[in-house]
Amino acid sequence: MKVAGLGFKQDVTLASLREALLAAGGSAGLAAVATVSDKADAEPLKQLARECGVPIKAVPAETLAGIATPTQSQRITERFGTGSLAEAAALAAAGPHARLIATRAVSRDRAATAAIAEGDGP
């Protein structure tokens, strides 16, 4: 199962999410997109999921806390307890033995990040 994890600012656009996903490797073969639960209802994310033909996996913030990620952001660590929201969401949603196949990529406007993980599923 291949999952794209997405982190984004409140005012993110579909274009920014699309750009970050493309920079991380694109949507080919994705089974789902994932983000922290409180962002899962964002309209631009719903639009991206529809475009890609995949469901959104909402990951509780407490699940993300403590997931080790290669990318480290002090702001994200302070807020979520993990170095990269996108990487942690991808890993959590792809299953217990997931591995990153694309580390965090950032949109040019810095409003969205994406990472891709592959795993056995939940």
Rank of each mutant, 00 (worst) to 15 (best):
107 S>A: 09
99 R>Y: 01
109 D>L: 10
46 K>E: 03
111 A>S: 15
56 I>G: 09
10 Q>C: 03
104 R>P: 08
76 I>K: 08
40 A>E: 13
61 A>R: 15
93 A>S: 13
57 K>N: 02
56 I>Y: 12
97 H>A: 14
18 R>E: 13
11 D>K: 15
47 Q>V: 08
34 A>C: 02
98 A>V: 03
32 A>M: 10
51 E>P: 00
80 F>R: 01
40 A>G: 11
26 G>E: 07
81 G>E: 07
63 T>I: 07
106 V>Q: 15
48 L>A: 12
114 A>E: 11
91 L>H: 07
33 V>E: 01
118 E>Q: 04
28 A>M: 07
69 T>K: 02
27 S>H: 14
74 Q>A: 13
80 F>G: 10
42 A>L: 06
122 P>E: 02
67 I>S: 05
41 D>E: 15
101 I>V: 07
20 A>H: 15
58 A>H: 01
80 F>W: 04
5 G>L: 05
65 A>D: 14
14 L>V: 14
43 E>H: 08
17 L>N: 14
92 A>H: 06
111 A>C: 12
47 Q>L: 15
114 A>H: 10
22 L>Y: 10
108 R>N: 13
102 A>P: 02
121 G>D: 10
25 G>A: 09
75 R>P: 00
18 R>H: 14
5 G>V: 00
12 V>G: 11
36 V>P: 00
89 A>M: 06
65 A>T: 15
91 L>Y: 09
120 D>W: 00
99 R>F: 00
65 A>F: 12
89 A>C: 10
18 R>V: 11
28 A>V: 15
100 L>E: 07
92 A>P: 01
53 G>M: 03
115 A>Q: 04
9 K>P: 01
9 K>G: 11
51 E>Q: 10
61 A>H: 07
15 A>V: 08
97 H>G: 09
45 L>D: 01
58 A>R: 09
13 T>A: 13
72 Q>G: 00
94 A>S: 14
89 A>R: 08
120 D>M: 02
89 A>G: 08
108 R>K: 14
51 E>I: 06
83 G>H: 04
84 S>F: 02
49 A>N: 05
95 G>E: 06
41 D>F: 11
17 L>K: 15
61 A>W: 01
62 E>W: 08
102 A>K: 05
76 I>T: 13
98 A>K: 04
101 I>D: 01
12 V>Y: 11
65 A>Y: 04
84 S>V: 03
28 A>S: 14
73 S>C: 06
26 G>H: 13
30 L>I: 06
75 R>M: 01
